[in-house]
Nucleic acid binder design. Structure first.
Lengths: 249, 249
DNA sequence: ACCTGAACACCGTTCAAGT
DNA sequence: ACCTGAACACCGTTCAAGT
């Protein structure tokens, strides 16, 4: 070995090469033993910069989130556009590196990139008219919706483009030949099942959540303006399941 | 070894014990080498019943889905209630075995339990008034919403109850001490961030999607038979996205 | 301080051999 | 037909030793 000068290995370079290795050879290939040679270094040298493999994975997750945040226009005046921009950027950043994304998308990162993302979303919630508990609650719905869908999609893409295409065909193949007496509903729409665009669903699911934010924010605004009456006023019961309503005491 | 008569090992028993081992010792412990002794058998004996580890994982996923389907009342007349029932049952079944659930929730199973689930959801979409491409599209939004949230939640639970509680505290600890000048919005609601109930968010996210299904189904019904649609109430306006309105009768 | 190389305690999977 | 045990090609992580 000995192909590289001492002190030239950095966390940033390790993260970069780790992502390359995982995308090129499959996420199973992301091992210290392969990563070392790819960096021109002994496999165990990486452990001088990351305590264990988990710490490396979290750093990769942070990098993906950094990539997403870099694309967001933080001066966009509309809170709704800011959230959509962040969501689309996150989706793009994760799908651009599906194999590593699948490994980290459901992790809690607790790094600076995560703090900044939380800050951005909560700021948007407050601009929408929510505050306190309602803002915290809706932040979580928005964040988890983006993360859950992103993780799901990353997992789908991580299996590889060829397998994915084959999976799409499987909807045509396997589902079309299911016995019609036992699966009449599937047979009725089987031909359409493979046509569905996943990006459209992501957007739709998000729009629905943001509609809810908007409705609740406006209602809360009315309350502040003096209107103690209205649909939302009666819903502020301590035992109600409708957590999104602003029940500030 | 030799603790067990020949021919008494079955796929069902392997799946059952595998789930026990994973929940008791952590999902990392789900290896053939530990599974064998737990079954009173050589580690490689399991390979006589499952081609490889992936096939075992898919069988575990199918079992989880079977558990969920067994709880659903298939004769429930309201399509909306059937979907909610299926969704809650899926959530319960997966959270009841979080460690194995985390391993399989994002997989495509392509087994009988999955076919039956697809059939149930598409049937509900058609009863809601959707058909063809719209039914297929909305099926995917509903199914992916349930799967994505379930997978996400399973991953959260899989880290262990103690770590989870510590994570909850982390919201109090780490987020409360963030510098207020850089993260003013976080500081404003930090005290509420740890109070959010995840089950409520799951329900809310689902209700939002089902509202969309209902709105589209009613609209389609109006187009088809000029206004009267038995499956949905007339008081549900198709263009109303105000999710505070519940169209359930 | 940073890196190496051997060692330790594990993996999944294959395969000839047993019953 | 079903199961065993050895073997093969891998893992992450530790640690004494080098520079």
């Amino acid at each position: 070995m000995a192909k590289r000068e001492r002190g030239t290995l950095s966390r940033a370079e390790i993260v970069r090469v780790a992502m390359e290795v995982a995308e090129a050879e499959g996420s199973d290939a992301l091992t210290f033993r392969r990563l070392g040679p790819a960096l021109g270094v002994a496999p165990t040298a990486v452990l001088r910069h990351f305590r264990d493999k988990d710490e490396l994975l979290l750093a990769i997750g942070a990098q993906l989130l950094e990539n997403a945040l870099a694309e967001v226009d933080h001066d966009e005046p509309s809170w709704r556009e800011r959230i959509m921009s962040l969501s689309r950027a996150t989706r793009r950043a994760f799908v651009a590196h599906p194999r590593v994304a699948a490994l980290v998308a459901t992790r809690t990162l607790r790094q600076e990139a995560e703090f900044r993302t939380v800050e951005l979303i909560i700021g948007a919630m407050e601009q929408a008219g929510l505050s306190g508990r309602a803002a915290a609650s809706m932040y979580r719905v928005v964040a988890d919706t983006v993360l859950a869908w992103t993780a799901f999609e990353a997992n789908v893409h991580a299996v590889g483009l060829d397998v994915m295409r084959q999976d799409g065909l499987a909807w045509d193949r396997e589902y079309v030949v299911l016995p019609a007496d036992r699966y009449p509903h599937i047979r009725g729409v089987a031909e359409h099942l493979s046509e569905v665009d996943r990006e459209d669903q992501f957007e739709l699911a998000l729009e629905l959540v943001l509609d809810a934010v908007e409705a609740r924010g406006t209602a809360a605004g009315h309350l502040l303006d003096g209107g103690a009456n209205g649909a939302s006023g009666d819903e502020c019961q301590p035992d109600t399941l409708d957590i999104a309503v602003n029940c500030e005491r």
